[in-house]
Write a protein that binds this DNA or RNA. Sequence first.
DNA 1: AAAAAGGTGTGATTAATATCACAAAATCCA
DNA 2: TGGATTTTGTGATATTAATCACACCTTTTT
Lengths: 226, 226
Amino acid sequence: MEYASCSTCLLKSKAVKSLGENELHILGQGCVQTVFKKGETIIKQGALSSNIIYLQTGLVKLMIDGSHRTQILRMKKAPCYLGLPTTMGDKINHYSAVALKKTTACFVDINVFKELLKISPEFSYEIIVELCKNELEQFNRYVRLVQNQIYGRLATNLLYFSNEIYLSDEFKLPLNRTELADLVCTSRETISRQLTELAEEKIIDIDGKHLRIVNKSLLEEISKKG
Amino acid sequence: MEYASCSTCLLKSKAVKSLGENELHILGQGCVQTVFKKGETIIKQGALSSNIIYLQTGLVKLMIDGSHRTQILRMKKAPCYLGLPTTMGDKINHYSAVALKKTTACFVDINVFKELLKISPEFSYEIIVELCKNELEQFNRYVRLVQNQIYGRLATNLLYFSNEIYLSDEFKLPLNRTELADLVCTSRETISRQLTELAEEKIIDIDGKHLRIVNKSLLEEISKKG
DNA sequence: AAAAAGGTGTGATTAATATCACAAAATCCA
DNA sequence: TGGATTTTGTGATATTAATCACACCTTTTT
C-alpha cells in the first residue's frame, strides 16, 4: 500500500489513529521517513521549508545562529511535531534542528498536512493543543530567562532538563559547557563558576556531564526569584 | 435571535463568516460581549479561565506579576484572540490583560469553542495560523531579549511597537518609563539613559511619550547585534 | 492657588558579568 | 601508549547595568 511508510511513522499519534483509509492514503503520498545520526542536521536555519516534521524517536536541539552569538533555544523530545509555526508562517526556517542522539523523523508535506486538518477535526484539535502547550511552556521559560540573572537562568534551564526532557532528578547533560552557555545566553566561564556555586550550596551534585538535583525546591526558588 | 451578540462580535473574523446558522446558534449561546475602559483588567493572572476571548476593538497589555518584579510581556491589538494557550493548557491564566484604551472583548466559552473547531475546518485553520504567527513573532522577540544587552533590547521593543502595533515610524508610546522598563526588563533609570543615548545618536526623536524613528535600519542593526 | 503625588532625568557608587589569559584535565587518535 | 586536541576551571581586569540619592517637572487634589 502506498501509505505504508506513513502508517509506520504517524500511527503513534493518537489523532491519526482516527483517520480512515482514505485519509491515510492522502497522508502516505506526502510522507517520507528518515533516520538521523547524532550530530546531523534535520532542519537548517534560513532554508525554505514545505514540510511539517513528525519526530518519532530521539532528541534534538533547536538553535539559532545569530549575527553575534549562537543560541540554543530548547530541546524537543519525540514524539512531537517540528516546524509547525515556521511552515504555517513565512515558510523559512528560523532555527536549525540538530540530533542529540539517533533520531527518526517523518517529513509530511504542508499541503497534505492542511488537507488532513480539514478532513479530521480530531487531528487539528491535537495540533492546536500541542501548539498551545508548547507556546505556554516556552513562554514561561523565556520570561524567566529575560528577567533573571545568570544564576536564576541556569536554575531555570536545569529544571527544564529535569522536568521537560529527562523526567528525572538525575541525568547526563546533553550539552557541554559552551553549549550550556549558549542555552543560558552567557559565557562558558560564567557557567562553569555558577555550576560550581550551585554544587557548593549543595543544590546540585555535578561530575562532568553527570548531574543530580539534590535540593529541587531550592532550585525552583532560585529559578523564580532570580 | 439568540446569537445576536455573537454575530455582532465574531462576524469580523473571516472564518466565522463561513459558519452556517446552526453553528452561529451554538456560538451565540456561549458568547458574552463586554466593553472595558482604559486601565481596566480583562484577564486576571492566577484566575481560573474557561473562556477564549476575542478582542473586537482596542489595545491591551499582557503582564505577569512575578515574585520579584512585574513584567510586561507584549501588546495585543484587535482583532485577535486572547487566552488560547492558557485555556487549552492548564486552565489558569498565566498573565493579566489590561486595556490600554477603550476595548471591546467577546468571551467565548471554551466548550463552545471546541465544538466550533470540530464543525468548521476553516475556523480551526484560522486559529492554528494565528497561533503559529503569534508564537513565531513572540519567539523571535524573546530570543533577542535574552541574548541582547539593554540597548539592543530597547531597540527590539521600539521596533516591535513600530512594526507590530502602530504600523508607523511615528507614534505615542502607550507606556510610561517605568512600564517601558518592565517591558525591557531593566530599571527606569537605565531606560531613561538609553532613550537619551538613542536620541543623541540621531536614531530616534523623543519628546515625552511622542516618539519618531529617524534611522530605522540602524535601529534594526542594534536590535540584531546587541 | 497651594499642596501633594507621581513621573522623569542624572550623578555617584556598587554589584554582576564579560573578557582575557593561562593552566589543568579529559578525550581523541595514530 | 603518548602526543595532539578539545574541554574545563580559575584568577585578574574591564564593562555593563542596578541601586541609591536627589532635583526638577507635571498632574492631580483640595
